[in-house]
């Protein structure tokens, strides 16, 4: 089992890692020949939110080499926090705090140190004074066995009623933050096929609806397995479809605002809401983080 890569876009990786870290302590990473998958499958039961992401190797790494007995795939579990810490010291300095120059060279490789498997991040950079520095972070990992891997299953969802392009997540996050005292831990998300998105909260003291209009409803490639491929045309464009989700889960998802450019939400009425957070522009298809937020059924 061999793995080695240069991290070319450290900042992107760092932001992804940040978004994941807020969600779950440990995450699973699957490296394949062409993609990196980060999976948070909610084993700790934290609000039921799951992340399944796929990021093209080329949008993060260069000089990528992978080799394993299992179809050249490597499955590992590691602490998201430790990975974020490693990437933090490699990420480009933000503002005054960074002690190093931006052109760090970061190499990540799979290493076995005294029978402990680690993912070793080696960072070569220069200080502001121009002296070379070498930083190494060894993040302890656990190589997953094949039977564990086979148990990982992406959640099954019905065909969503609505696809809608979300407003900038940072803005959404402020509104959700402000709604927190007005919501009894549950927030309703509703959308229709004519570009309207609503967030609703209710307590004994007040009922609040915040709505965005004029958003776009992207046409998604239909899953060929669904029986009625044209049922979205049959839907009334003004009918709102909604789910109730836990405020905490929604806030965890909104932590991904650091990495997001475009986010598409898919609402499966009374089942779940799926958010596709695109990394980089959609056209480039550099990668996507898929968040599954389960609905709270009243």
């Amino acid at each position: 089992m061999r793995f080695r890569a240069n991290i070319e876009h450290v900042n992107t990786f760092y932001k992804i890692s940040q978004a994941v870290e807020k969600l779950q302590k440990r995450c699973i990473i699957k490296f394949t020949e062409s993609e990196m998958h980060i999976i948070c499958n909610n084993d700790a039961g934290e609000g039921g939110i799951q992340v399944w992401s796929q990021i093209k190797v080329s949008s993060l790494f260069t000089d990528y080499r992978i080799q394993s007995n299992a179809n050249n795939e490597i499955f590992l579990a590691l602490s998201a926090e430790a990975m974020t810490a490693a990437l933090r010291s490699a990420a480009a300095p933000s503002g005054q705090q960074g002690a190093f120059s931006a052109d760090a060279e970061v190499v990540v490789r799979l290493v076995k140190r005294s029978d402990v498997a680690t993912l070793s991040f080696e960072i070569l950079t220069t200080t502001r004074m121009g002296r070379g520095v070498r930083i190494a972070h060894d993040v302890r990992i656990e190589i997953l066995k094949r039977e564990d891997v086979s148990r990982l299953k992406e959640p099954m969802c019905p065909e969503p009623e609505v696809h809608i392009l979300l407003p900038p997540l940072a803005k959404l996050r402020t509104v959700v933050e402000r709604m927190r005292p007005l919501a009894a831990d549950v927030i309703g998300i509703r959308a229709n096929l004519s570009g309207c998105l609503q967030l609703c909260a209710q307590t004994d003291a007040a009922r609040v609806d915040v709505s965005w209009n004029g958003l776009s409803n992207p046409t998604m490639a239909q899953d060929p397995s669904t029986q009625d491929p044209d049922n979205s045309e049959a839907r009334d464009p003004t009918t709102l479809y909604g789910v109730l989700v836990s405020l905490k889960s929604l806030q965890k998802f909104l932590n991904s605002h650091v990495v997001s450019t475009t986010t598409i939400a898919c609402i499966c009425q009374n089942h779940c809401i799926i958010m596709y957070v695109y990394i980089g522009e959609v056209a480039e298809a550099g990668g996507v983080l898929t968040f599954y937020v389960p609905a709270i059924i009243e």
Binding site: P167, L182, D204, A205, A206, R207, V208, V210, W212
Partner: peptide
Amino acid sequence: ASGPTATCEVT
């Protein structure tokens, strides 16, 4: 114009 609108009903 592009931003959200909010409707609140305070008891």
